[in-house]
């Protein structure tokens, strides 16, 4: 069930060339989406050390989105493939840590996909609202 009054904290790691440009296009096109997602832009999705994501969950994130260029379109040739492998492994690890793997999402968003950026944010926010706040126990 979606908890409408729950305002999740979501971090979005965006690559500069495709996904951040896609987020810019959502803005230029004035497509509205929930303000819960805070963007962090890096040069390439492969710059995202899995430990940043774990750190984000530890410090209060209810969800983390990682977005990069579509397969084959990476500005740095193959960075997104590395990201895909890292996120796949990390999802398994998150389950072991008691964090639902649905709280971590990997998306390919191109510079032309403003609409996709906005709909991913909407969907993901609703998904996290359904999961509820991340229970960090006493840690």
């Amino acid at each position: 069930m979606v908890k409408e009054n729950f305002n999740p904290k979501i971090l979005a790691f965006l690559c500069k060339w495709c996904s951040s440009a896609g987020a810019d296009l959502a803005g230029t096109s004035r497509i509205k989406y929930p303000p819960n997602v805070l963007p962090i832009t890096v040069m390439c999705s492969s710059r995202i050390d899995p430990s940043f994501i774990i750190h984000a969950f530890k410090r209060g994130a209810d969800g983390v989105l990682v977005a990069g260029c579509h397969p084959g379109d990476c500005h740095y040739q193959s960075g997104n493939y590395k990201t895909r492998r890292r996120i796949f492994l990390l999802k398994g690890l998150l389950e072991d840590l008691g964090i639902e793997s649905g709280r971590l999402r990997l998306e390919w968003i191109s510079a032309a996909e403003g609409l996709k950026f906005a709909s991913v944010i909407k969907e993901f926010t609703r998904g996290i609202q359904t999961l509820g706040p991340l229970n960090r126990g006493n840690g």
Binding site: G27, T28, R30, I31, K32, Y33, P35, L38, A118
Partner: peptide
């Protein structure tokens, strides 16, 4: 970036202001 990734995509002034400050 508080225009493309904030003011242009949000309507709620308080939320947009908070987010612009966070960014």
């Amino acid at each position: 970036n508080i225009r493309e990734q904030c003011s242009w995509v949000h309507e709620n002034k308080k939320a947009a202001t908070d987010k612009a400050m966070k960014i």
